[in-house]
Design a protein around this nucleic acid. Sequence first.
DNA 1: GCCGAAGTAGACAATTCGGTCTACTTGTTT
DNA 2: AAACAAGTAGACCGAATTGTCTACTTCGGC
Lengths: 180, 180
Amino acid sequence: MNSKRQTLVDTALNLFYEHGINSIGINQILKVSGIAKKTLYHHFDSKDALVLATLEQRNHSFNEWLKHRLNHSKTNSEVISNLFHALQDWFSDKAPELGKFRGCFFINTSAEFSDPSSDISKYCQYHKQQVRNIVAQYLFNPTEDLLDAICILKEGAISMAYVANDLSAPKKCIQLLNKF
Amino acid sequence: MNSKRQTLVDTALNLFYEHGINSIGINQILKVSGIAKKTLYHHFDSKDALVLATLEQRNHSFNEWLKHRLNHSKTNSEVISNLFHALQDWFSDKAPELGKFRGCFFINTSAEFSDPSSDISKYCQYHKQQVRNIVAQYLFNPTEDLLDAICILKEGAISMAYVANDLSAPKKCIQLLNKF
DNA sequence: GCCGAAGTAGACAATTCGGTCTACTTGTTT
DNA sequence: AAACAAGTAGACCGAATTGTCTACTTCGGC
């Protein structure tokens, strides 16, 4: 793994996630990372290519964190509880792997890139599919309905936390799913 | 109501909602609306002030549309059904008052404006609170739990529709809430 | 008609944007 | 040491950004 390339992706991801992709120009990324512009364009064809690399990195770290949090679940009830407690920790800045909570990087990115056919938008969609698959992997014989419910509530909890500043949604999701 | 001001807000709202606020500069709004720059700055102190006006207009039209869709509901079950069918229509571009579906303007705006203390972010939060109050107004003796569940699922359905391109979430939310 | 308000086209300013490039240095491999 | 890859500072480019301004026209009220 190339070290300069990694520094660029790390720096860009942090800045993009914190401020929004269209609010951070490449010159700011270069300034913070201390890397030369030509080096950036040596590794990435364009800003969009850098954005895609940040999405991939975020996808990877999010999914690794999620799998870690769902590991050792013994029942579906535990999967659900662990999932939403993980979300709660994320919203409360208690998931250092994910950084300071600034909503979902993939939702935010979808908001900033309006063309659904772009690689960037498609990657955001892909991420959501991957998260669903990970949850399914930890559940025992899950129905599609249960999976759907979990995913909708997960998305809802994230938006509630970020837009409405209501961090209590995960607890409510657990209760709701326990009545399912 | 001033006609030039209204044209500016209409035009800006359409462009912002379709492309994202940071992807549309004021020169583009002026070009599309055919209005002079000095006129824009006569009516608004800054781009941010124009953004806030678009949020207010969107908030108003969304809430009027929602109230219209929830009107005549006779039971809580009907409120829920009408709410999520309304969302379904919105996602499927069958709510002309709301324009072509491009996610939730308030979620998208929160993504683009990262400072939670800004008037713009606060307005997005205010909108979510208003929608919750409208739903509560149409429900008969709703518990806080029911209201919470409805709001979380509503947010989840919107994100599922926009990011994951899954338009079936509203139907699933109805089923889930019927088990509540 | 007069006057002030509202509106116009578009130049200007300083800055930023994403990307290309020159001329050079540093690091790695043979 | 030589050759090549990787990296550097930063100038340059054309375009775009937000906001200010000049000089003028149009509109509406009296």
